[in-house]
Nucleic acid binder design. Sequence first.
DNA 1: GTCTATATGAAGATAGAC
DNA 2: GTCTATCTTCATATAGAC
Lengths: 192, 192
Amino acid sequence: MAKRDKTEQIRQQIIAATDDLLYHKGFNLMSFSDIADAAEVPRGNLYYYFKTKDEVLAAVIEHRLQQMRLMLDEWEHTIPTPLARLQRYARIPLNEMENVTRFGCPMGSLNTELGKSQPELQAIAKQQFDLFREWLVRQFEALAPTENAEHLALHLLVRTQGLATLAQIYHDTALVMQEVEALDHWLEGLAD
Amino acid sequence: MAKRDKTEQIRQQIIAATDDLLYHKGFNLMSFSDIADAAEVPRGNLYYYFKTKDEVLAAVIEHRLQQMRLMLDEWEHTIPTPLARLQRYARIPLNEMENVTRFGCPMGSLNTELGKSQPELQAIAKQQFDLFREWLVRQFEALAPTENAEHLALHLLVRTQGLATLAQIYHDTALVMQEVEALDHWLEGLAD
DNA sequence: GTCTATATGAAGATAGAC
DNA sequence: GTCTATCTTCATATAGAC
């Protein structure tokens, strides 16, 4: 029992370290040595926990998905209206200002990198978008009677992704504030 | 003379091949061998033309900037109004539908990749955004009296970048059409 | 200028001693 | 379960014959 716990703890340590590394360096520049150093696990030892770099990626994405589900569930329970929930989503870049202006969006930048020529890996990373997308669709459906919930959800994703891309390129905090405010007003307009 | 011409011709051949490769694979997955193969230049021979991969990147960006300047100049001379010019810009993803849904935006995806941990290289790639951004600001200033030309230019960049990101993730041509149409209407509204 | 052969280093991955 | 030593592959880069 104690053994299994320790193994699992080290696994989580590796996943947490890789999560950051992936965000800060990208998948293809992140080496197994980087992961070992960051997780403070001896180099060759990593292979006991994960056989390939792809496996680590899959574990990190699975971990992210779990965290996201927890967060969205919490929002459902603590934020009373669909409007406020959508606004909460749109405000993520404000809360993550420092990270967004330095590294962009962790989901978007990863998909952009993998989408070019690593379709199997992108399929894994894409699940993060699927999860948000489906949640957003449900919120828009609850916000107001519409047949456009799908379009609206994608439009919101488009604008938050573009915002993250430009915010990083220009390290521009003012841009984040302006764009989030514009999204806020747009959402309010839809709710009327 | 003839010799210099041939050297220059091969240089251009390498730059053109690398331009595509960069877009289709990304910078970090693109190897010198890939470039040599694509440009049909013997492997070790590349080093005669470019000493490092970074140098090839700089040459490709310089080439792209030249093409962009030519295109924008042509638009200035053949498209009569600022509104029509801005709409022409917003419509690029429609003309590049196949590429955008497969590889995203060539400028945006490159900056996203390099922005994480290769600031010197990103500084080179960023010039593409600077060029469009300044041109867009001038068009918005000519469109209608405003103090927000900078904001509007960035907003348009945000939405085209987000569009390209999502269009690639979901290989979604309908999304491109919807978002470009929405941009079209938004621009028309500003012109009134 | 052109091309082959090769040096060098880092990456992913494995075997096997402890 | 832990760690070292090592294999293989592929990358950048150079030397030097033609």
